[in-house]
Amino acid sequence: MADFSGAFWMERAIGASAGAAVSLVYMLPKGSREAACRFLAGLISGVVFGGPAGVFLAARLGIVAFLSPSEIMLSGAAAVSVSAWWGLGVLARVAGRWGGARG
């Protein structure tokens, strides 16, 4: 059965927030609305998919035996958050460049 204690949510939220914060260094948002949308998407996706992503990454890298469950959760949430941040940033740039009314 899954552990839904307070630490469970805090690990995911901290990892997802860290991933979104690190992403700010690499791809700055154009405005506050884009920043808020991308941060929330990173936070939500990190909380939801952080555990499975952390387990997948640790198993793929062969480091499961060296990490605690908390570290796996934090790293997975951060990785998913970074991916969501970048994905939404790319989509926002593409939509801004090629979007608009036609005709």
Rank of each mutant, 00 (worst) to 15 (best):
R60L: 15
G96D: 04
W85V: 08
A41H: 09
S17V: 04
S23H: 01
W85H: 06
A2S: 15
S32I: 14
L67D: 03
G89Y: 05
V47K: 00
S68L: 06
R93K: 08
F39Q: 05
R33H: 12
L57E: 04
A36C: 11
L67A: 09
R38Y: 01
A20K: 03
A95F: 07
S45R: 03
S32A: 15
A79P: 01
P69M: 10
A35P: 02
V82N: 01
V22P: 07
R93D: 12
L24H: 13
G54N: 08
S5C: 03
S70L: 10
S75T: 12
W98C: 14
E71I: 06
L28W: 12
A95S: 11
R93F: 06
D3H: 14
S83L: 08
A92Q: 11
S70K: 10
S5K: 04
A16M: 02
V90Y: 06
R60K: 15
S68H: 06
G62S: 03
A35E: 09
F8E: 08
V94C: 06
A16H: 01
V48H: 02
V55S: 15
G54A: 13
C37L: 15
A78W: 01
P29A: 04
L74S: 01
V94M: 12
K30D: 11
L61K: 07
S23V: 03
V22F: 14
P52M: 13
A35K: 12
L74H: 01
A18I: 14
A35L: 15
F39K: 02
D3M: 13
V80M: 08
M27C: 09
W9N: 00
G100Q: 02
I14S: 02
G31I: 07
L24M: 15
V94Y: 09
V48D: 04
E11N: 11
F49K: 12
A7L: 08
L28M: 15
G15E: 01
G54V: 05
K30V: 10
R102C: 05
P29H: 02
P52R: 08
G6V: 12
W9R: 00
G99N: 00
L88T: 08
G54R: 07
A21Q: 05
R12D: 05
P69W: 07
L88N: 08
F39D: 04
V55F: 14
E11C: 04
